[in-house]
Every structure is written in C-alpha cells, then in structure tokens.
Design a protein around this nucleic acid. Structure first.
Lengths: 221, 221
DNA sequence: ATCCTTTCGAGACTGTAGTTTCGAAACTAT
DNA sequence: ATAGTTTCGAAACTACAGTCTCGAAAGGAT
C-alpha cells in the first residue's frame, strides 16, 4: 500500500510538463489563441495528447496554466517615492502585457473566464489576489514613508492600475512607451488628493476562502 | 448594366438582418458567448446559415455587429458638476458592461481583436473613437464650467475610466453597485490635481498638503 | 524477482460546430 | 420573355476538442 502522499505507479515526467508549456507559448506566438490546437501542442512538444489531458481538463486550462504560470507580477523594489514606485509598477505591468504571446491569450482567456466559474476561481486565486496584495504592499510603503496619510481604496486602485494598462493596449491600441510615466503621475495625484477624503463606504469585501484545489487543477482519476 | 447604386439580383430581405441580430442577442442572454452556435442562431431566426455568412465573414463579426450595433455609449447629460458628470458616465459604462450578453461577448471579442487587425479596425472606428470623443466632450464641459484649468490627458482618461470598470467587473469580479461613486470621486480628485501640474516633468513634492478639494458638495444629478 | 499501478507516445474514434456548396427562388435589365 | 445576378434555406463538408485503446516503460510494494 502506498505511503502518505507518495504516489504509486510510474511518476509523471516533469520534462513533459515543461514541454507542454513551452510548446503552448511557442505556438501562441506563432498562430495565436484561436489557431492553437491541442494536436499541434502535442506534436510540437513531442508527446501524446493523453499526456496533456491527464494534466488539464480542457484546452483552456492548458493555455491558462502556460500563460499564467510563474507570471505573477513581482512587486518592484522600493524606489524611495510613491511616484517612482508607481512608475516601476506600471512598467512591470506593461512589460508583461506587451508580451505578444501571453497578451492576446489573456484577453481570450478573460472571455472564457467570464463564462466559466471554475476557471474564474482559479484565475482569481492564482493571479488577481496576489497582484492586489502586491499593490497593497506598495501603497503601504507610501503610508509608512509619510507620503499618504492613510491607505487608499485598494480594490479601486488595483482595478484602475491594471485596467488602464489593459484598456490602453487592447482597446485603444496605443503605444505604451510613455504610459508608465503618464499613468503613474496621474494616479499619484489622485492618491494624494483622495487621501484627504473620507472613503465612500466601509464595506470590507471578504475574500472567500477556497480550500484544496489540486495544484494541477485536475482531480485524480 | 446596373444603375447608380441600384443592386442587381435578388435583394436582401431586411427582415433577415433583424432576425439575426435579435436571435444573437436572445441566445447570448440564454447560453452566453461560449455556448452560442451559428446553427442555433440560424434556427432561432428561422433562416439558413448561408444568410448569416453572406453578411458576416465569421461568427465573431456577427456577434460583434449584434452587440455593438447602436450600443454606442451616449454622453450623459450635463449634471452641473464634473463629479456628477463622471458619476453618470461611470453608471452608463457599468450599465452597458453589466449586461451579461454584451459583457462576455466583449471580452472574447477583444481576444479575437488582438489577433485580427481587420476586426480591430472596425472595433476602433465603431466603438472606441466615438466613446473617446464622448469622454472629451464631458471634460470640455468641465473646462468651460471652470472646474478644470485645462483639458487633461484625454487618451489616458479614456483608457482609465473604461479600463477600470472593465477590470473591476471581469478581472476582480467585484460588485459594481457603488463603483460609479468611488471611481468618479477618485478620478475627479486626480483631474483637479493634475490640472495644475506641468505635464512633462517629474517633480516630487514632499507632503505638500493641498486642501483645495473643498467644493465637493453635489454628488447627484 | 514479480505484481500492481500509473505514465508514456501513438493513433483511432466521436460529436460538435464553423464554413461552404447547391439547387431553387426573387429580382433587374434588356 | 429571357438572361444575368444575387439571395434564400437545406444539406454537405471539414476541422478539431475531447475520449479511448493499445503496447511499452517506470516506478513502488512484497
């Protein structure tokens, strides 16, 4: 009988996992989200389709994992000022969203997410929550530094910062080269002003704690 | 030979056009973007699939036309204050994006647009440009009213306002009920601050407290 | 060493849905 | 009227997601 947590049977080859994500990213850049087929991923990775569906329930989950995996936005280091920090954060976001492979896929993925609560849940815990936490940390630095009197509306700030970049790139299709400076200056001004105003409401959006989703998102057969 | 503008051959039945868009909207509300099939649209409209593909090159174009047609965001009427106008504008955007049918479709559409320059062009002229023009008009009112010293960065404002709502709804999945007030207040503060800053500089004022945000009395139209 | 379980690549199979083809019908021009 | 053109609905075509089976291989357990 099997020991605690130890798997019985042939273990999964981690090289297969890497080959899948590498193939997905490569093909996303070449043929785009709509042109991506599971068969092509398998061939490009030199594996069988079964090895893909053993790991991911659907094609979308496969793409999701390949696009989001490890892409959690790191909090930029302390630059010494709120304006500097915001500029650096905007640069990180722009950098990630300018990657053509992940970029187009992310939008299509958001479409899927809008119609698939399971995927939405995973997306939130994997991507959204950490990113918002990073934003919060950045703002707390400004409070400690004395640049802000109190913590601003984190949820609004988070939606605004990322949402602006998203809209700038994928709706307006503007050149992002000077967006970080413009956005950071604008938001910085808003934060300094808003810090003097009372918050519109005092509801605390409790984050639903979900427990134990398998790391690979696939319940074992 | 054909006369000026007159079409030769059997004319299109305008009832078919109407039936298509009506069927798309009806089905989007029932089954969502991912569950929408061309066959279902054809059956629901009581027509053949060929009549759809004669009008639209792809399924996505069909949905795009059905969703965007006539949905151009109207500029809300003058409420007498910038804050009021911004709140009203945010309510309009939230209202449109909260429509489940259009909402999921828009995100998936943005994914297609990222990979299809033709669709991107149509989307820009049909949807993005008019919306930005509407935003500009609203800000010009504030300048005429004397609330703003000069016209702010229109492109940034446009991306920020719509992008924030987009992110709030489809990335953070938050409740939008009080978003218009929060967003409008925040952006209003930013506009007032940014209006009397030099545009191309990166000055770093310490904690220069400005209490000039007093005239905030009205909040509702 | 020998089972037992699981993963592996490969390929066949199925159902669904986007797209195209086809004969008939509708309309204009001569 | 008749030829030419375009639209119509129905049906055929095609691609692909997703599933399954196969024989082989890689572990762990006894």
């Amino acid at each position: 009988m099997e020991h605690n947590g130890q798997q019985v049977g042939r273990p999964r080859d981690s090289r297969v996992d890497e080959a899948i994500t590498a193939a997905v990213r490569k093909l996303l850049g070449e043929v785009g989200y709509a042109g991506l087929t599971v068969a092509a991923v398998a061939e490009c990775a030199g594996i069988g389709k079964a090895s893909i569906y053993r790991r991911y329930a659907t094609k979308h989950e496969m793409i999701f994992a390949a696009v989001v995996h490890g892409e959690v936005l790191e909090v930029p280091p302390d630059t010494g000022s709120l304006l500097g920090d915001l500029t650096a954060l905007a640069r990180v976001i722009v950098g990630h969203l300018s990657n053509p492979a992940a970029a187009g896929a992310l939008m299509s993925l958001l479409g899927e997410i809008a119609a698939d609560p399971t995927l939405a849940e995973r997306f939130t815990t994997t991507f959204v929550d950490p990113e918002r936490a990073g934003n919060a940390e950045l703002l707390e630095r400004a409070v400690r530094r004395g640049e802000l009197e109190r913590l601003p509306d984190i949820d609004l700030f988070h939606a605004m910062f990322g949402g602006t970049v998203l809209s700038w790139l994928f709706i307006s299709h503007h050149d992002p080269h000077d967006l970080p400076e413009r956005l950071a200056r604008f938001v910085c001004a808003a934060l300094r002003s808003a810090a003097h105003q009372p918050l519109p409401s005092d509801r605390v959006p409790a984050v639903a704690d979900e427990r134990s989703v398998a790391p690979d998102g696939r319940s074992r057969p």
